[in-house]
Design a protein around this nucleic acid. Sequence first.
DNA 1: ACATTGTAG
DNA 2: TAGTGCTACAATGTT
Length: 882
Amino acid sequence: MGKLVLIDGHSILNRAFYGVPELTNSEGLHTNAVYGFLNIMFKILEEEKPDHLAVAFDLKEQTFRHKMFADYKGTRKPMPQELHEQVPLMKEVLTAMGVPILTMAGYEADDILGTIAKRCQAEGEEVSVVSGDRDLLQLADTHIKIRIPKTSRGTTEIHDYYPEDVKREYQVTPTEFIDVKALMGDTSDNIPGVPSIGEKTATNLIVAYGSIENAYAHLEEVKPPRAKKALEEHYDMAVMSKELAQICITCPIPFAYEDAKIENLYTPEAYQYMKRLEFKSILARFDVQDMGGNSVEEHFWSVEDLSGAEQIFEKAKGAKQVGCQLILAENQVAGLTVCIGEEEIYTIPAAGFLTGNYLCDHLEELIAKRDPALEPVAVLDLKSQLPYLNLDYGSAVVDMGVAGYLLNPLKDTYEYDDLARDYLGMTVPSKTDLLGKQSLAKALEEELPEAVTCGCYMAYVACKAAGVLKERLEKEGMLKLYREMEMPLIYSLYHMEQAGVRVDKEQLKLYGEQLEGKIATLEQEIYELAGEKFNINSPKQLGEILFERMQLPHGKKTKTGYSTAADVLEKLAPEYPVVQKILEYRQLTKLNSTYAQGLAGFIREDGRIHGKFNQTITATGRISSTEPNLQNIPVRMELGRAIRKVFVPEDGYVFVDADYSQIELRILAHMSGDERLINAYRDAQDIHAITASEVFHTPLAEVTPLQRRNAKAVNFGIVYGISAFGLSEDLSISRKEALEYINKYFETYPGVKQFLDEQVKLGKEQGYVTTMYGRKRPIPELKSGNFMQRSFGERVAMNSPIQGTAADIMKLAMIAVDRELREKHLRSRIVLQVHDELLVETHRDEAEQVVQILTDRMKHAADLKVSLEVEAHTGDNWLDAK
DNA sequence: ACATTGTAG
DNA sequence: TAGTGCTACAATGTT
């Protein structure tokens, strides 16, 4: 058995026209009705998954109804021009998708639909008839469902009617429905009714008598008298109206069921139409690979001659919107791509006269001399290009990757294909699709045509996305954040990466060797105590040795076996010397492999590590550090923190290390507005002790170390989105006790409780939470039906505004510090950022001044209800500067 | 590619 | 009911 969907073309188009806000493409064509129609159609196709589909349209010609009734004016009010011009367009689009269009002289679309619906039902098919016109309800039948889309509050709902549904809503059967209509008349269809009979009376009459004819036969009984009189006088008119409203189900329409079979709606022709009409969300449904490629690729060019390149730069200079991208190999420029509008996208490989330098100089000039009346040059990843361009804060350039990050920080990548999909509704081949594992620079050198395609897409997407992303940022209230925080930060991070941090290679090597010596000893001792050799680094083997062969009591289990995590082993360590040794071994091997060996591999010729600082990774707005990670250098344990001694300033310089004291808690005080917390943090020396004093109602001087420790844990817990379980784990207390602490805390600081609850509420309502500066963190987990997921979402909702605001403030501070150091031409530079800490390498002579600058800029990066406190220290290595 | 572990704020 | 406090990155072993 098949399933057929029939659509009343004019009716749905009409409904879409009034339901969808005005929409035109760049040619000025009105497209809203076609757009709305397609959306309704796709929605129904997705729901029903029919195997057959056809759309019926009315024709201009007179129908049999005109002959029946001389005054019959036609079926519809005159269409507005804006809708009228969309009818042929709609038909073209449907034809391009291979959907049959049914019309027939002398009949209306209703009649065609009715005829085919009944015919197919008789042949055993399931039929859905989609229309905005309720007159079609008369067609409802056991296997014919009438579907009426209703737009309310922006969303389209589809109401379905089988005969029982009609009965429920109108008290009459589908066949009787026409009689009701005929009695009351239908102004929109110019069907005359019986005067003074309204919907109520008409329904009552038909419910009682089943038809107009039968009611007339029982005229004497008809009530009220008014209706009786009207029916008597206008009976002929009523019958005529009924005939007019009656859908003809026997029109001689040639229709082969097989012709309506849905083969493939997503044809290249249809794709071209969607493109021309600029239906981005619909375009996204198409698989571009099948479309014979994006037609924009027709405008991708490779330019290899000097005069060609000159012309491009000349033209780019005056173009309103330009997209560019330097193509970089290891340490050199392999090419430049430029997009100037829809049809001019160029890849210029660096070769011959077109040297890398030439290309960089021109790109630099294009940006540096950009006419302020034009849009800034759009690029994908500015920081990676800055080494080749002499640009600084405020240049006329925007980074599309960073913009994409602000709009959705949860994504893994912000490459051109991601941006094209998310913001242009285009499916374009990714770099990997085009080049596999090969680098773009390499492919360009080898003159692979795919390299030109890939390069051009980069410039094209940057260019096209610029307007869209700007609009979106504006709409979401993040344009200021983008322009005044994220864009400038690119330069700060670039300067920091360029500066790098000096690491004493010899000392690091020595440190590693010491570790290795101790590791070798420990290793032997462990084998001895365990009674056999095994790979201590393998949690699997270690678990088997400890918990099976040696029969130690095991704690929690992981998916794959016994957990050998530190917190489990620590509980066993006092009783089992081997476990203690394993813990030490773990610590040492960690230090050796990740830090001693790991860092050594990143020291460059200049004796410095130039790690990467990434701006588009974290969900909260923090920056992250890779290759190597310089934000997790040990400090908590004595042995580990010794590594920090190998981080040293260059000769004649010192380190100034400045860190925010309790920035997250201060932000909590500010954002929650809790008076008591604000007062506590005004001028606070020991915040945790004050919290303990207030929560436990103890004079500050009498706060015990335990009380302070508990208060500190609660403080941390609050920032992380506390749970009784988490706190109980942290403090090794019962869940009940933990809950009591939390409740006491909230009693003491009710504003904090209110604030955290509010964040969860906002998160659920909006799907995201925001920082003080408007940065958004989407939290899809809040909508999850899974308790775990949802709880996670709730904690994230509580934590992100705080962590994110701290990140924002640090970013502002960094930018301010970097700018001032540079503007004053100081021999000082930021070398590391560790979330709430800045490490600056400064000439000895400037140390005092730099301490001032750092402290001042960091303290005043934000104006909160509590002061921001900064601790700054000077030292000859990172450890001593802490 | 994924899991486990351990560093940091 | 289960199972939990947030954000990252890297080394190692296992599949």
